[in-house]
């Protein structure tokens, strides 16, 4: 036992030393009162140049849109990998649903949850939010379906192939929106320069291609995260006959 204690103490001291080195590195930088670098340009002119009042959305989907494509590819890769690793396995006891009161209660909440998710996605360019956050809330709604109604119900309502379709279509939509910019000669994933309408800053219909990219990312993220959850709780055979609307596979 003392060897593992010794190792723990050594690890703890190593972590402390690492933390001290990083702290020393931070202390060496004197804090600046003015913002330097491209951040200053973003703060001043993001609204006129891109048409979006949410500067974070402008940076994510206009100035540095290739990073967002890369991040969406990370999610795509992990979803594909998880589906590949769990392709042949089915689990016998998954979720069989909760009691009647919970089902009725959740059925009142679900429409508002979906509306909230859609609101986050669509208004990403004027208020905090965007494709990633909204897509994650959509996926949370499907997880709620699984937990409350049973995974059989969820598999019937939204088939796994539909989720694959939505995910790939969202990803392709992102790339195609970027190609429009390439075709008009303004560069890949160009926003206003590629001809997307800028609109009036602060209104709902503004921001050029940013709402479209939000929708594409929202589709991809929601379908992807939902696929991850579903791959881990696939049902082998149906054992419950209590809920209405569930057909045998």
């Amino acid at each position: 036992m003392s060897k593992s204690c010794f190792l723990r103490i050594v690890t703890f001291l190593l972590c402390l030393a690492l933390g001290w080195q990083f702290w020393k590195g931070i202390l060496a930088l004197e804090p600046t009162q003015i913002i330097i670098g491209p951040a200053a340009h973003y703060i001043e002119s993001a609204a006129e140049e891109t048409g979006a009042t949410n500067i974070v959305a402008a940076i994510l989907f206009d100035y540095r849109a290739l990073d967002t494509l890369g991040e969406a590819s990370v999610i795509y890769t992990s979803v594909c990998g998880i589906a590949m690793l769990f392709a042949k396995s089915k689990f016998k006891i998954s979720s069989t649903g909760l009691s009647f009161i919970v089902k009725r209660g959740v059925s009142f909440i679900i429409p508002f949850l979906l509306l909230y998710a859609a609101g986050i996605v669509l208004m990403g360019h004027i208020s905090p939010g965007g494709g990633f956050q909204g897509g994650a809330v959509f996926a949370t709604a499907t997880i709620l379906f699984c937990i409350v109604y049973g995974s059989g119900f969820e598999a019937v309502m939204i088939k796994p192939k539909t989720k694959e379709l939505i995910e790939s279509s969202g990803a392709l939509m992102f790339v195609l929106i970027g190609f429009v910019g390439l075709w008009t000669g303004a560069g890949f994933l160009a926003n206003i320069a590629a001809g997307y309408p800028k609109g009036e800053v602060g209104r709902f219909l503004s921001g050029g291609s940013i709402p479209l990219l939000n929708i594409a990312v929202g589709m991809k993220v929601s379908a992807g995260l939902s696929t991850i959850f579903y791959s881990m709780i696939k049902l082998l055979e149906f054992e419950v006959t209590k809920h209405p609307g569930v057909k045998n596979k």
């Binding site: 042949k88 689990f91 016998k92 959850f229």
Partner: peptide, 27 residues
Amino acid sequence: VISSGLITSLFLVAYSQTQKEGRREND
């Protein structure tokens, strides 16, 4: 949303699936 909602639920699903021995049939 992602970390305290989705990631926790995925961890719990993984935990629940690995705790049941003998009641799982997969290849």
